[in-house]
C-alpha cells in the first residue's frame, strides 16, 4: 500500500505537467519549460535518494530507505525525459547535431556524463544484480555521488550565462547538508 502511494507521489511531476498542459500553464515556450522542469525534478529525485539514509538513521523514519530503489529509478526516469526533451526539442533527434552538441559544449558534456554514470546504477537495481555483484554492488552505487556533483555542475553551467546562480546554490547547499553526516561518519571510521 505504501509503495503504491510512493509510486504515485513520484509521478507528481508528470501529473503537474499534464495539468499545466491542459490549463495552458506550460508558458509560451512549453518545450523549454518541460526540458528544464524534467531536469530539475531529476535533481530533486536524486536529493530524495540521498535523504533516505540520514532520515532513517537520525529520525528513525525508514519509509524512504525502504523504497530507495523506486526513488532511484524515478530519478533515472526524469533524467531520461530530460535527455529525450533535449534530443527531440533542441536537436530534432539529429544524431550528428546531438553528437556535435555533446563534444563541443561543456554543459551538455557534463550533463551527458552524469546520465551515463546513472545508467549502470539503474540497470543493476534488481535483487538479482545485488546478489551477483555482492560487495561490488555498493561500490558501484557510490556512483550516485559523482552523478549528483556533475548534475549540479551542469545546472551551474546552464545558469552561468545569466549569472543567475540562486537555485544552484540551494541545491548545492541541500546536497552538502545531506552528505555532511556521511563525511563525518567516514572520518569516524578512520
Amino acid at each position: 500500500m505504501i509503495s503504491v502511494l510512493m509510486f504515485f507521489a513520484c509521478l507528481y511531476p508528470v501529473f503537474l505537467w499534464v495539468g499545466l498542459g491542459l490549463t495552458g500553464g506550460l508558458t509560451a515556450n512549453p518545450p523549454e519549460y518541460l526540458i528544464r522542469s524534467s531536469g530539475e525534478w531529476a535533481l530533486v529525485a536524486l536529493c530524495v535518494v540521498l535523504l533516505a539514509t540520514p532520515l532513517s538513521r537520525y529520525a528513525r523514519i525508514s519509509v524512504l530507505l525502504k523504497h530507495r530503489r523506486m526513488l532511484g529509478l524515478f530519478a533515472y526516469f526524469y533524467s531520461i525525459l530530460h535527455l529525450l526533451g533535449w534530443a527531440f526539442w533542441e536537436q530534432g533527434f539529429g544524431l550528428e547535431a546531438m553528437w556535435l552538441d555533446v563534444v563541443t559544449r561543456w554543459f551538455i558534456t557534463v550533463g551527458v556524463v552524469a546520465f551515463v554514470l546513472l545508467t549502470p546504477l539503474a540497470l543493476t537495481s534488481t535483487y538479482g544484480w545485488m546478489r551477483r555483484l555482492g560487495r561490488n554492488w555498493k561500490r558501484l552505487h557510490y556512483g550516485i555521488y559523482p552523478a549528483i556533483g556533475l548534475s549540479i555542475w551542469h545546472f551551474w553551467l546552464v545558469r552561468a550565462g545569466k549569472n543567475d546562480f540562486f537555485e544552484v546554490w540551494i541545491y548545492l547547499a541541500v546536497v552538502f547538508l545531506l552528505c555532511l553526516p556521511r563525511i563525518i561518519q567516514l572520518r569516524h571510521h578512520k
Binding site: 518545450p31 526539442w89 533542441e90 556535435l100 552538441d101 559544449r105 554543459f107 546552464v158 550565462g161
Partner: peptide, 8 residues
C-alpha cells in the same frame, strides 16, 4: 552554449 542554426 548552443547552436544558432535553428529557432523555436
Amino acid at each position: 552554449r548552443w547552436s544558432q542554426a535553428t529557432e523555436r
